[in-house]
Amino acid sequence: MLDELLGRASLKDRIDELEAENERLRNRYEAESDRRADAATARQDAEERVNRLEDRIAQLEGDLERGTDAEPGVSVRRRDHLRGARLEAVLDRLASFRTGPEGALTAGVDEDGLPESVRDDLTDVLGDRLALVDDAAPCLCCVDDAGVLAVTLEPPIVPDRDATWSDRFALERERFLPTGRHAVALVRTDLFAVGVYEGDERVEYRGFESDVKGSHSKGGFSQARFERIRDEQIDDHLERCRDALAAYEPGGESADTPLYLVGQRGTVDALVEESALEPTATAAVDATGDPKPALKDAVRSFWTTELRVV
Rank of each mutant, 00 (worst) to 15 (best):
R181K: 08
G220K: 06
R43C: 09
T288M: 00
A46P: 08
E47L: 08
L271S: 06
S210G: 15
E65R: 09
D16H: 06
L238E: 02
D92L: 07
A137K: 07
S275T: 15
V196D: 02
G100T: 06
D128G: 02
D134Q: 12
V50F: 03
F169A: 07
S275F: 02
H81G: 11
S301G: 10
K213A: 15
E227Y: 00
H237W: 04
A40N: 04
E30P: 01
G252I: 04
R98W: 04
V76I: 05
A146F: 03
V148Q: 14
G199T: 14
R206G: 14
A40Y: 04
A40I: 03
E306Y: 11
D162L: 13
A136K: 01
G180Y: 03
R78W: 01
G103M: 13
S117G: 03
F226R: 12
N51L: 04
V262T: 11
V184D: 02
E172C: 11
N22M: 00
P250C: 05
D121P: 00
K292I: 02
G252N: 02
S210W: 12
D290I: 00
L82Q: 14
D121G: 13
V184G: 11
E47P: 03
E209S: 15
A150M: 10
E48F: 01
D55Q: 13
L271T: 02
M1Q: 10
H237M: 04
L2K: 00
V262F: 01
K213Y: 13
T288Y: 07
E17Q: 02
H182C: 07
L114C: 01
I57G: 00
F226T: 01
R35G: 08
V74K: 06
A298K: 07
D120A: 10
D269I: 05
D92P: 14
Q44I: 01
A150L: 10
E274C: 09
R308Q: 08
L53P: 05
Y248A: 06
F208H: 15
K218P: 01
A95M: 03
Q59R: 04
P250W: 05
R14W: 05
G251K: 12
F302G: 01
W303H: 05
S117R: 00
L6E: 10
D134C: 02
T305M: 00
E227W: 07
V76K: 01
L186W: 00
D243I: 13
